[in-house]
Amino acid sequence: MTVSALEAAGLTRMDDGEIRSFLSNRRVGVLGLPTDDGPYMIPLSFGYDENRTLYFTFVGGPSSRKQTLAEQADTACVLAYAVESLFHWESVRLNGTIDAVPESEWDDLAAVLDSAWRPELFETAIEAGDIAVYRFHVDEQEGVRHAGLPPGFEPE
């Protein structure tokens, strides 16, 4: 079934402003990096600068698979979503490019990087470990949402 067909059941497409607002209020998603065997999917937290750019902090050093794949990737995808119920959810899919941010720029990004949600375990790993910061430039974005009950299910 296509997105157009689902619009009859209450699905709506998000405009650029709604996508910006959604990404500003979400701090987790899934990064997809290309491999020969299909996409390598990584749950992650991100900072968003509201200018079509997300920032990720990778823990694990240059021998980590995600860092190696990010360095090799021409393109990548990010999926961010929120699900409150069967009839109330939002999803944003982003396609773009990913590149390493030089350490000399990290201080300039402190506010954006600090806004990313991280479990305490990751905070400890960041303080003690080898980290890298990556920038994801959004080239294409699409957002959809469903809020409310589908037609025919409204309360009487």
Results as ranks from 00 to 15, higher is better:
E18C: 02
E18R: 08
I19E: 10
R20M: 05
R20H: 07
F22W: 09
F22Q: 13
L23A: 03
L23Q: 03
S24C: 15
N25Q: 14
N25C: 09
R26C: 11
R27I: 02
V28H: 06
L31C: 12
L31W: 14
G32E: 03
G32Y: 14
G32T: 08
P34G: 15
T35Y: 02
D36S: 10
D37T: 08
D37K: 07
D37S: 15
G38W: 01
G38A: 05
G38S: 10
G38K: 04
I42R: 06
P43I: 11
P43Q: 08
L44Y: 15
S45A: 12
G47E: 07
G47V: 00
G47M: 12
Y48G: 02
Y48P: 01
D49H: 07
D49L: 14
T53E: 07
T53K: 11
G60Y: 13
G60A: 03
G61D: 12
G61E: 05
P62D: 12
R65S: 02
K66V: 00
Q67D: 14
T68I: 09
L69T: 03
A70E: 10
E71Y: 12
A73D: 13
D74H: 09
D74R: 13
C77V: 09
V78Y: 04
A80Q: 09
A80S: 11
Y81A: 08
A82M: 07
V83D: 09
V83I: 06
S85F: 12
L86W: 14
H88T: 12
W89H: 10
E90L: 04
E90D: 04
S91H: 11
V92H: 04
V92L: 02
N95M: 14
G96F: 06
G96Y: 12
G96W: 09
T97V: 13
T97S: 14
I98R: 01
I98H: 03
D99I: 00
A100R: 11
A100E: 07
V101P: 01
V101T: 05
P102E: 07
P102R: 10
E103M: 05
E105G: 00
W106A: 00
W106Q: 00
L109I: 04
A111T: 08
L113V: 02
S115F: 13
A116M: 03
W117T: 03
W117R: 10
P119Q: 10
E120M: 08
L121M: 15
A125T: 04
I126L: 10
I126K: 04
I126A: 02
I126T: 01
D130G: 01
D130L: 00
I131V: 06
A132D: 12
A132V: 03
A132M: 15
V133P: 00
V133M: 04
V133Q: 05
